[in-house]
Amino acid sequence: MTDWLSDTRDSYDTVAVSYADHTRDLLDGLPHLRAALRVFAEQVSGPVADVGCGPGQITALLHGMGVDASGIDLSPAMVALARSEHPGLRFEVGSMTEPLPGPLGGIIAWWSLIHVPDDLVPVVFGHFHDALQPDGLLQLGFHVGDRTNLKTQGYGGHPMRVHVHLRPPERVADWLRAAGFTVEAQWLLGTDGAILFARRG
């Protein structure tokens, strides 16, 4: 495991409980994100992988919308927490830098790609493309900007060591097109976030 992957795994193992507490009710005040989930749930057909699922809240919300959703996360502590809090759903330890099980009707990756270095993003998108069935739907959420920050302290004041990559939406869209996706929509969330909808060609 490369240094950035092990740092990311260990950091989220450390903050798993605090992160879950911080994000548990976060979507209550974010109507545009809830709307993005509803659009995804209405458009997707077939099983869905929530990649970088953390404590499983998005996986559970999609399940509540009638989606056959399961979660994958790099952090064993996050996966254990997700299984505990959502015992009826499936969660596995895994990395988006490795091939994903398929075929899938959809993949959702909210604010998990932000830790992947630029040179590996095309590899990740290749894995997403390979795992999706024809016309499979991909939804990405990420921070907008053009810089990388080193995060050394996280949720609950616990130490972390993760690089957070902020990217222009058009750069992410270009990577998606190069991987064989059609970008169907780009939503800007204020000035610091974006949601991209893409479909496998």
Score class of each variant (00 low, 15 high):
residue 168 P to C: 06
residue 168 P to E: 15
residue 81 L to S: 05
residue 190 G to E: 14
residue 193 G to H: 15
residue 21 D to N: 08
residue 7 D to Q: 12
residue 26 L to T: 09
residue 200 R to Q: 09
residue 166 L to Q: 12
residue 108 I to N: 00
residue 196 L to F: 10
residue 5 L to V: 15
residue 64 G to K: 04
residue 30 L to E: 10
residue 130 D to E: 14
residue 153 Q to M: 06
residue 9 R to N: 09
residue 131 A to Y: 04
residue 94 G to H: 06
residue 39 V to D: 12
residue 46 G to A: 10
residue 12 Y to G: 03
residue 151 K to G: 10
residue 200 R to M: 04
residue 165 H to K: 04
residue 88 G to P: 05
residue 179 A to W: 00
residue 141 G to P: 05
residue 68 D to R: 07
residue 151 K to N: 13
residue 72 I to A: 04
residue 20 A to Y: 03
residue 84 S to T: 13
residue 115 H to A: 14
residue 27 L to W: 01
residue 76 P to F: 05
residue 179 A to G: 08
residue 5 L to T: 10
residue 48 V to A: 05
residue 201 G to W: 15
residue 141 G to Q: 07
residue 119 D to R: 12
residue 40 F to N: 10
residue 170 E to F: 11
residue 135 D to F: 13
residue 138 L to F: 02
residue 75 S to R: 15
residue 159 P to C: 04
residue 63 H to N: 09
residue 153 Q to K: 11
residue 133 Q to A: 15
residue 71 G to D: 00
residue 128 F to Q: 09
residue 178 A to R: 00
residue 145 G to F: 11
residue 124 V to D: 11
residue 77 A to S: 14
residue 13 D to W: 13
residue 14 T to S: 11
residue 78 M to L: 13
residue 160 M to Q: 12
residue 158 H to S: 09
residue 60 A to S: 09
residue 111 W to D: 13
residue 147 R to A: 04
residue 187 W to C: 00
residue 53 C to H: 03
residue 149 N to T: 13
residue 107 I to F: 02
residue 29 G to L: 03
residue 152 T to L: 13
residue 71 G to S: 05
residue 121 V to H: 04
residue 36 A to R: 08
residue 17 V to D: 14
residue 89 L to Q: 04
residue 126 G to T: 14
residue 95 S to G: 05
residue 71 G to Y: 04
residue 27 L to P: 02
residue 156 G to R: 05
residue 111 W to Q: 08
residue 70 S to P: 02
residue 106 G to E: 00
residue 186 Q to C: 12
residue 25 D to L: 09
residue 135 D to A: 12
residue 162 V to D: 10
residue 151 K to P: 05
residue 24 R to K: 10
residue 4 W to M: 12
residue 52 G to A: 11
residue 110 W to C: 03
residue 179 A to L: 06
residue 73 D to Y: 07
residue 181 F to N: 05
residue 94 G to V: 01
residue 118 D to I: 07
residue 110 W to D: 01
residue 128 F to R: 04
residue 79 V to T: 05
residue 28 D to Q: 14
residue 201 G to V: 15
residue 114 I to L: 08
residue 120 L to K: 03
residue 143 H to V: 07
residue 163 H to M: 13
residue 100 L to E: 15
residue 104 L to R: 02
residue 16 A to E: 06
residue 182 T to D: 14
residue 133 Q to S: 14
residue 47 P to F: 00
residue 136 G to N: 06
residue 176 L to V: 01
residue 187 W to S: 00
residue 199 R to A: 01
residue 200 R to T: 06
residue 125 F to Y: 14
residue 170 E to Q: 14
residue 41 A to S: 10
residue 119 D to N: 12
residue 186 Q to S: 11
residue 198 A to F: 00
residue 57 Q to S: 08
residue 106 G to C: 07
residue 154 G to W: 03
residue 98 E to M: 11
residue 110 W to A: 02
residue 150 L to C: 06
residue 134 P to E: 12
residue 5 L to G: 01
residue 159 P to L: 08
residue 109 A to K: 01
residue 194 A to V: 07
residue 171 R to I: 00
residue 15 V to H: 02
residue 36 A to I: 06
residue 27 L to V: 06
residue 157 G to K: 11
residue 92 E to H: 10
residue 80 A to I: 13
